[in-house]
Simulated assay, not measured.
Amino acid sequence: MPVVNQIEHKREILMTHLDMVAASKALTEPVQIIRPAEFHYRQHADMTLHRIHGQRRIGLYDQAKKEIIDIAECPLMSAELREWYQKVREMLPSIQFGHFRVRVAPDGKRGIWLDFPNRVLAWFLEEERFFKRLCLDALVQIGQQHTQIGNRSGSLIHQDTELYPWSETYTGKNLKPRPLFSHVGAFSQAMNKELMKLVHDAVGSCLELKSWIELGAGCGNFTLYLASLQKPVTAVEMYPLALCGMKKSLEVSGLLSWVEIIKANFHQPNKTLMNVFQSANAGFGMLMDPPRSGMGAAFFTSIPDNSLPGAIVYLSCFAPSLARDAATLLKRGYQITSFKGLDQFPHSPHCEWVVVFRR
């Protein structure tokens, strides 16, 4: 489908899912979808390597075809990332299956995280040549523990896992760029200024709120922005690596004093999470960026009426779970006051949605 026709198609997909849960009636105006000013903004990419029938494919999983689609290049990648990705494709060994993440920092530093089976990683560590070559070009981390590998005087060594400003986020009314620290393999939102403008407008429509709770804070993409408003922020995240990156980003930006960091599982109701809501000041808002599965009805229905936020800024790239959560929130007395999308994923059915719910 031509790119010019994709926005309307994505709007139709969204409306279909909202209709299925009777949530489309809550929209007071047409859903607006914005296209980024430029495509070449991505500084990281997550890819899968799969060898099948003797053919090596490196790319993304196609749910409809149930197979890996080989991606030689992508218009969303920056020129620097595209060059690094092409080199990695040439260097990767002939293995059956594995995942990897490639990054290029704003200063040009390259990174790669290899999530290969342990026996495969062990073999290549013993063989050495592949990792020695990688270490000449990039900061290398491997496995679920994100072990960092270095090359010292021709010998492979284990190093302390390094936090690095692999990306940027934006803060304040003028959306000033700020460094965002993370590990190479840490998940981070595909950030660009257009998305932050949508979040800025959404949060700006709730200026009367006195504090914010953020669920799924990750490495701090939106935490730093909320903290820059100089209102108390409670940032909830469950992954230790993400928490380390968030804390350092806040420290470097001078914003840590505005944020209380809570380690908790936000995917399901639990005592720690309920305490966060019960101890929140009256008149607080919540920003959430859940995984594709959404938050789920069990989470929203577990919060007592007197502990519900006055407003929710909800980010999602997956229309089905967004629609289900929207239906639950409408039943709990919320109204949709803003529903906008950013077409960050051309040639796919996905869109980054930013929705404001208010009580």
Rank of each mutant, 00 (worst) to 15 (best):
S279Q: 15
I58G: 03
N174C: 08
E38F: 10
G218Y: 01
D107S: 13
H17Y: 11
L163Y: 00
L329D: 01
G294M: 05
S257M: 10
A186C: 14
Y225V: 15
V4P: 04
M77F: 09
H146P: 00
L287M: 08
I95F: 00
R103N: 02
F97H: 07
K10A: 01
S188I: 09
N306F: 07
L241M: 10
K176P: 07
P165M: 07
L273N: 01
Q43D: 07
K10I: 06
E126H: 10
E73R: 06
M15D: 08
F181K: 03
Y170F: 12
N265C: 08
N265H: 08
Q148P: 00
H347C: 07
Q55Y: 11
I95P: 00
G296Q: 12
M295N: 12
V140G: 02
M238N: 05
N174W: 12
Q141N: 09
Q344P: 11
A72L: 14
S302Y: 04
Y164H: 11
A79Y: 04
G154R: 02
R103V: 01
I13Y: 05
Q86K: 04
G154A: 02
S348N: 08
N281S: 15
I312D: 01
V355F: 03
V276C: 15
S205L: 12
P309K: 06
V31M: 02
N221W: 09
Y61G: 13
I262A: 00
P320M: 13
S253C: 04
N174I: 03
R56Y: 07
S338L: 04
C206N: 08
P240G: 08
L322N: 05
R110N: 15
E38N: 11
L315N: 04
A186D: 14
A323T: 08
K193F: 05
E29L: 06
V102Q: 01
R110I: 14
T147G: 02
P36T: 12
L92N: 09
V104W: 00
D107H: 08
S321G: 10
E8F: 07
Y170V: 13
G285I: 03
S321N: 13
N192F: 04
M288N: 06
A264P: 05
L195E: 01
R292C: 12
G108A: 14
Q159A: 07
G220R: 10
P36C: 12
A105K: 00
L250Q: 02
V276G: 02
S249Q: 02
K197N: 11
I33A: 14
I142R: 05
P232H: 07
G218A: 11
Q159D: 11
I157T: 12
I69V: 14
F130H: 14
P346V: 03
K248N: 02
I213H: 11
R11Q: 04
N306W: 06
P177Y: 01
F339L: 05
H347K: 11
R35F: 10
Y239V: 15
R57G: 05
